[in-house]
Design a protein around this nucleic acid. Structure first.
Lengths: 351, 351
DNA sequence: TTGAAAGCGCTAACAA
DNA sequence: TTGTTAGCGCTTTCAA
């Protein structure tokens, strides 16, 4: 295809713009312009250069490109905690957004170690990323990233920062709790007990508030003693059922703080001969498929839409990179996924 | 600290080597040498430059560094499938290795889409990574990465390639099955049934072979009809128990292809009034904590050591990058994690 | 319509 | 012991 009837020979290392220029018998800048669609070139030239470049499998070095002023089109992703079960969907969501913009992601796992986090930040800064997303468990609020005086957009996804001014996106746990409560009320349940995680966790408090709010709207109260706090485990679900059946035999609904607890609750109820949902309806939280779908009956549960949360986090970071103002805590609505543990079948969203 | 009593002023953008040179009143190369510990410099000069650089918070641009010939110290990580439950520990292991060498990771999630994978590869090549690790589910062997004619080390971690010559590291499923079998035999069980996943999956076949081998060594046979293949679900575990109790009431041990099946099996047995482990011992596979530990009784199960697998995959890639020869399928030994579903208590490894 | 040249931030060979 | 200079691969004025 190249002039003179000779096929251009691929050099050993990566093909450079020089190689293309030589093969196409034009100058460097012509190649650059042709390939980037910039400047004023004859169509023929542009086509010819493009053909040669393709034939040579020319892949412009992003390294060199970003050196000469262009945007880096690369961001850093720091998992402050270990990559957990919740991080995964968030991470995938983020990547969906960034892939669409051809932005590369440096993945860093600080694994909860501040020193490791420091090193990663250093490396990200040295690599001149355009921005950083921080993910992690949000049980305990974290310090804002220490950027060593550098100015760089940072967005916190599913990660709580002590200072509420930092741009961050979290699930609307309150709304989630409310969804669960409304669902139960709508199905006519009126003796609701809440079995949830550690009392000091913010999400635990929010979910309870949401439930309380929904019940209140239906003229029902949620007395403090009917909120049982414990660990996020199946075992706690079992234990809670013992207490509930002993203390409040008229209970007709249990809203659980997560799916593991719900699984424990359902299993325990079955073991006691209590029918779910006929006698007691159960709602979980997380929509952790592998648990929720395998429970018998399958769990109706609240979904935090973590994939979507990741997508939006990515978009927000892009906004910040483009100079947009993004601040404060934002909450993403949850959805209710209806399976069989409440008897109902319609699906609800709340936006 | 700088000369003339003036504090050097940080420029607005990232600090460059020029800024440091100016502030320290020396030349570019002196700064470079001082900071890299190369060349011959007076100790005083070196120290002085270092101090100034630190004060200015100078962070040499990795971009510029890698342009001028140095190694990129960056690798690509492609998740061919969605980041799954198994990818996580592998990923963390890989990062452990690479962090220790200060190598950055570009994360790409091809999500099973060949076109997306192509784009990611393109991007990785354009970013001149030193090598690539491919992770993903290994249920179905994948095609080797198409590097578009470029030469670059690629290592497959927990990902099966059609051509067995490609360097890849997989769990030793056969050994894992053997561990389970030996454990059961050692505990005196002699009527073993195997409830496992889809028959066509390689891991399913290997695990069965391992079990068979272990039983054979103790003079026991594993007739084909006692290998029940199905899906990887709890539901299948329940169903299998029905069949087993009906067909072979003398069964005293069940080895399950994964922990979900095992969970289903144990739950079903309990529901039928069969005691675990007193009447029937159960062994799982995966050591998926959240399931294995929550099962009642907690599951004795085989651990694939995925974190370690990731670590070693990282090391192997580094070897390849350094020009070492790495080829063919390698297998990482599994371990047996003893909990309570078999009655035994000692822990076993097999190296 | 094309090409020459400067520059991005750094390293490294060579001079001084 | 330090500084000058020439790249690394590309983009982007500015000249031709």
């Amino acid at each position: 295809m190249a002039m003179l009837g000779r096929r251009p020979v691929r050099p050993s290392g990566p093909v450079t713009i020089h190689d293309v220029a030589k093969a196409a018998q034009v100058s460097l800048s012509t190649v650059s312009k042709a390939l980037n669609g910039t400047g004023q070139l004859r169509e023929e030239t542009r086509d010819m250069v493009r053909r040669v470049a393709e034939e040579l499998r020319f892949r412009p070095s992003e390294i060199a490109r970003s050196l000469s002023g262009r945007q880096r089109r690369t961001i850093g992703l720091i998992s402050s905690d270990h990559h957990g079960r919740f991080s995964l969907p968030v991470l995938e969501g983020i990547q969906d957004t960034l892939d669409a913009e051809s932005i590369s992601v440096f993945l860093c796992n600080a694994a909860g170690d501040p020193e490791r986090e420091r090193q990663h930040i250093h490396s990200l800064l040295a690599n001149r990323v355009d921005g950083i997303i921080v993910t992690g468990t949000r049980a305990t609020p974290r310090h804002p990233l220490n950027l060593e005086g550098e100015h760089l957009p940072v967005f916190y996804a599913f990660s709580r920062v002590v200072d509420p001014d930092y741009p961050c996106l979290l699930p609307d746990d309150r709304g989630g709790g409310q969804l669960a409560g409304e669902h139960l009320c709508r199905l006519g349940r009126s003796h609701v007990v809440h079995v949830t995680g550690p009392a000091h966790v913010e999400a635990v408090q929010h979910r309870r508030q949401g439930l309380e709010h929904a019940l209140a709207e239906h003229g029902l109260a949620l007395p403090p003693e009917r909120v049982l706090t414990g660990s996020w485990s199946e075992a706690w679900g079992h234990e809670a059922v013992d207490r509930i059946l002993a203390a409040w035999p008229s209970t007709d609904a249990i809203f659980c703080g997560n799916d593991q607890i719900a699984r424990g609750v359902v299993d325990a109820l079955r073991a006691r001969g209590v029918r779910v949902p006929a006698d007691i309806a159960v709602v979980g939280f997380d929509n952790w498929e592998i648990i929720a779908a395998a429970t018998r009956p399958p769990l109706t549960t609240v979904d935090m839409n973590l994939h979507e949360l990741g997508r939006q986090a990515g978009l927000q970071l892009l906004t910040m990179i483009d100079g947009g103002e993004v601040r404060g805590v934002q909450r993403l609505p949850c959805s209710l996924v209806v399976r069989e543990s409440c008897g109902g079948q319609m699906s609800q969203n709340r936006g």
